[in-house]
Design a protein around this nucleic acid. Structure first.
Lengths: 366, 366
DNA sequence: TTGTAAGCGTTATCAC
DNA sequence: GTGATAACGCTTACAA
């Protein structure tokens, strides 16, 4: 079926002459190398139809007579025809691309999210363009600009903090946009997130219920980690209710690596040796801090209670198991993708801002 | 600078009339909605030049007179012009896209790899198309076909096992291809991998050095997890040297989740209660098995030695710490991307098949 | 250094 | 149900 020529660039000119990037009429200018080789015109020629009919067979087969359709389909297989999406896009403005920008694929939460975005989009044969902003709004802006050149039919971004230009570019483009991971702030267009503020409040509430009052917080730098800021704000808000405030806030450079958990623990204890509880804004740090406490003989949760965020895989396998906040990152990604698709499909009046529920997973460490 | 109209779809027609998808000459057929609005022609008009000059300013500014260039650049900013990459691609066949297909972004190793692929490509302003094959060659084939429509300038795949059609399609396309994660088998084009076979051998060697002989293996299903097969083959190869063979091989459905480690441990012990060592083909399972052993009072490494694969973050924080194989996944991704770029740049005769070194990280568990 | 003309491969439109 | 023709927005080739 497929000619098994050993050389790369093997060509398919076995049955019919394949168009070779020349003007079909008029004086033949010098050659232009044709990218793929087989084009719609070749299929039409072999099938004995016009290109238009081939085009119809591909996009709206129900409009074509059964017999013609089979002829064309056979020609497509025969020639191994692969449509050129650039030409399609140029003529029809339907790129079937969705652009996704996240801070980093190295962070499990974003990788999970993207996995499910991609999964949902693939079901509908949309392709996914992926970009890492590296926690920088400037890089995000550059990515948006560069992706915009490809006319994506949707954008999925992380958070609601962007440069003015990013916002302006996106709004002007008229493309559906979903912002994820942030259910606290208003979105440009649509959003699928969760309340970081309430998550922080919930953890503070847990600690207060246990009668603890010297509470610390560990998260990313204020100017980088906006979601952690919101969690901190919620944390403070609940404490303020009892006339309290966090005794230490440790800010770490992003991306936060697992080992940073130990350093953070040290910084907390150096600043306030009598700290009774620590809220880590990511489980990986909480886990390494917890293991470090075990190693040092610091009792968890009695001497120091620990709560993480994200409900990573290993948390429940530790001793003590890790108390944490569980957020449905997979569902968030899947829904974000579905919202984009729904908008593309013209199902207009759907809920614009979805706030997903999170859960406090109460286990051994707090 | 940027008109701050509150409505979406805000248009920029403040200074000059923007082309609106009509034939500039001849009888005006009915309108075709222009996707972005501003196009090169508009920039040219505002700058008082031809589109050709605008094109040059964008792609080869050194060919344009300083004064003209400034005029054009100002017009570009003024109009917020964003080039249409479909048109560029159609005219020039340079998509500046690289397609990446991995089994799953949910698995840390692939997410790490992709993170670095994307990072390297972004430095050169290439965009990344990402697809999950879900450990299925059929899905991989579909993704390849669909990505091929977008004329990527390179493909990065996982492993060296593909359907015949996948191979045929890719070879015919003439696009540079890098296969990753497999340094044992010959590649279609280029490859950046490591020897799974030698990794398996190394682990068996470690266990043999410790005088253990009833050895088990835990990995993915044979028909899905080809890299684990290679590790198993190496494992067996080393054991055969001493007239031995694994006492149990547990095969799990992919993707393997952390909790599967405990189930696998049970299956190993059920099949051969006197098992002395287990090689897990992924750290996440090794970690949960190790923690489960602690919980059950099974002594590690004395009663059962455990070795993982991948050197995940938490392995060295456990007690006992996890012995494992470390593979430079990040470097592998980065190099894969660089190989593609080098080929695109025409730096032809570079090493085609790179085998990256792995390291045995000897820690407490084996 | 700049401009003109002719495509790139597809789809929209309209006529048959 | 099918085909001819004109775009889609850009770049290549060549002329000025």
């Amino acid at each position: 079926m497929i000619p098994a020529g050993p050389e790369r660039f093997a060509s398919t000119r076995d049955r019919i002459e394949v168009t070779q990037g020349k003007a079909p009429t008029g004086k033949p200018r010098t050659k232009r190398p044709s990218a793929s080789g087989v084009k719609m015109r070749d299929v039409a020629r072999l099938a004995g139809t016009s290109t238009q009919t081939v085009s119809r067979v591909i996009s709206r087969p129900e409009l074509v007579a059964e017999s013609t359709r089979q002829l064309v389909e056979r020609a497509i297989v025969e020639l191994n025809y692969i449509p050129n999406s650039a030409a399609r896009l140029l003529a029809s403005s339907a790129s079937r691309i969705v652009a996704v920008i996240i801070p980093s694929l190295s962070a499990t939460v974003y990788a999970q999210e993207v996995h499910h975005i991609v999964r949902v989009l693939e079901e509908r044969s949309f392709s996914t363009l992926i970009g890492n902003s590296d926690y920088s709004q400037e890089r995000e802006e550059r990515l948006v600009q560069s992706f915009l050149e490809r006319q994506p039919e949707g954008f999925i971004l992380t958070g609601t903090e962007h440069t003015e230009r990013t916002t302006a570019l996106l709004k002007r483009s008229g493309v559906p946009i979903v912002e994820t991971f942030d259910g606290d702030s208003p979105a440009m267009d649509m959003s699928v997130g969760f309340s970081n503020f309430q998550a922080g409040r919930t953890v503070a509430e847990l600690f207060r219920t246990r009668g603890l009052s010297r509470l610390a917080f560990v998260g990313g730098r204020q100017d980088q980690d906006f979601r952690a800021n919101a969690r901190y704000a919620g944390y403070c808000d609940r404490l303020a209710q009892d006339g309290l405030a966090p005794v230490v806030r440790v800010e770490l450079d992003l991306p936060m690596r697992q080992a940073d958990g130990i350093a953070a623990l040290d910084r907390v204890l150096a600043a306030e040796p009598l700290t009774q509880a620590i809220f880590f804004s990511a489980d990986n740090m909480a886990i390494s801090a917890l293991l470090e406490c075990n190693r040092r003989g610091i009792g968890v949760p009695d001497q120091i209670a620990i709560c993480g965020f994200g409900n990573y895989d290993y948390g429940d396998a530790l001793i003590p198991s890790l108390t944490t906040i569980s957020v449905p990152f997979e569902e968030m990604g899947a829904l974000a993708a579905r919202e984009i698709l729904a908008r593309i499909d013209g199902d207009s009046e759907r809920p614009r801002q979805t706030v997903m529920p999170f859960r406090l997973i109460r286990r051994g460490s707090a």
